[in-house]
C-alpha cells in the first residue's frame, strides 16, 4: 500500500500561540483515516495545515510523493487535495449549482465534470431538488452536504472532511457516514475530522487521537473503539 499523505513533525502558530506541537501522521491510498479529539484540540488546524490555508512553522508535508510544505493552497487543489471546510464554508450568494461549479474550478475536462456533477446530485438528492436555491438560505444540514459535494467536484485523490456531521439530525448523520463510506469505496482516500467519535471510528480504517496539539494515540478504528481511555474521553462511556 502506498502512502498518499505524510505529515512529519508539523508545528503551527497562530500569532504566538502554538496550536500544533510537532504532529506526525500518514494516510495511505484507499483509506479512511479519522482524526478525533476534544474541542480546540487542533483538528481543524491540522486540516488547514494540510490544505495550505495556514503556513506551518516547522515540519514537512508530503503528498503523492511530492513535498508540498511550501506549496500554495490553490496549487495543492490542482495536485488532488481538496478540503470541505468546517461549518458554513460554502459560498452564500451562489446557488447550489454555482457552488458545485466552483468545486470544479481547477478542471478543464468538461465532459468528466458533467459526469461527476451527475454523481454528486445522485449522492445528494436534496441538493438536486434545490439546484437554484442560494447557498446562504440552505439549512445547516444542506449546507454541509453542499460543502462535501462541492469538494467532490474537484475529483480529489484525498478528500479532507472537517466535521461533516456537525449539526445534523441523527438520521442525517447516519446518511452522511454511509455516503462517506460510499465515496471511499468508489476510490477516494479520506481524512476525516469528527466530534462524533463512535461513528468515525466505526467507519475508519485507522485513526489518530489529538489532544492540545499533540497526537496522543493511534491505531485501527476497531482498536481505538475498544480502548478504555478513548472510551472514557470521547465515547461517553465510563
Amino acid at each position: 500500500m502506498t502512502t498518499l499523505l505524510e505529515i512529519e513533525d508539523v508545528s503551527l502558530l497562530y500569532g504566538r500561540i502554538k496550536a500544533l506541537h510537532g504532529i506526525s501522521l500518514t494516510v495511505d491510498e484507499g483509506e479512511i483515516v479519522a482524526l478525533i479529539g476534544a474541542n480546540g484540540a487542533g483538528k481543524s488546524t491540522t486540516m488547514r495545515a494540510i490544505s495550505g490555508i495556514r503556513p506551518v512553522a516547522s515540519g514537512r508535508i508530503r503528498f503523492d510523493g511530492e513535498d508540498i510544505t511550501k506549496l500554495r493552497a490553490d496549487l495543492r487543489v490542482r495536485r488532488g487535495l481538496c478540503q470541505a471546510p468546517e461549518g458554513r464554508g460554502i459560498f452564500p450568494g451562489m446557488t447550489v449549482m454555482e457552488n458545485l461549479d466552483m468545486g470544479a474550478y481547477t478542471r478543464r475536462d468538461r465532459p468528466e465534470v458533467a459526469k461527476d456533477l451527475a454523481k454528486v446530485l445522485e449522492l445528494f438528492p436534496r441538493l438536486a431538488e434545490r439546484r437554484k436555491q442560494v447557498g446562504g438560505t440552505l439549512s445547516g444540514g444542506e449546507q454541509q452536504m453542499l460543502a462535501v459535494g462541492r469538494a467532490l467536484m474537484s475529483r480529489p485523490k484525498l478528500l479532507l472532511l472537517d466535521e461533516p456531521s456537525m449539526g445534523l439530525a441523527p438520521m442525517l448523520i447516519q446518511q452522511i457516514f454511509s455516503i462517506i463510506t460510499e465515496i471511499n469505496q468508489q476510490g477516494t482516500t479520506i481524512l476525516l475530522v469528527e466530534q462524533n467519535a463512535q461513528q468515525a471510528l466505526a467507519r475508519a480504517h485507522r485513526a489518530y487521537v489529538l489532544e492540545t496539539g499533540r497526537i496522543v494515540k493511534e491505531g485501527t478504528g476497531a482498536e481505538l473503539l475498544h480502548d478504555p481511555s478513548v472510551k472514557e474521553a470521547y465515547l461517553g462511556v465510563a
Binding site: 495550505g52 493552497a73 490542482r78 481538496c82 478540503q83 450568494g93 466552483m102 474550478y105 481547477t106 474537484s154
Partner: peptide, 10 residues
Amino acid sequence: EDEDAAQLMG
C-alpha cells in the same frame, strides 16, 4: 464571499 473557501477550491 469566502476567501478561505475560494482558496480551498483552487
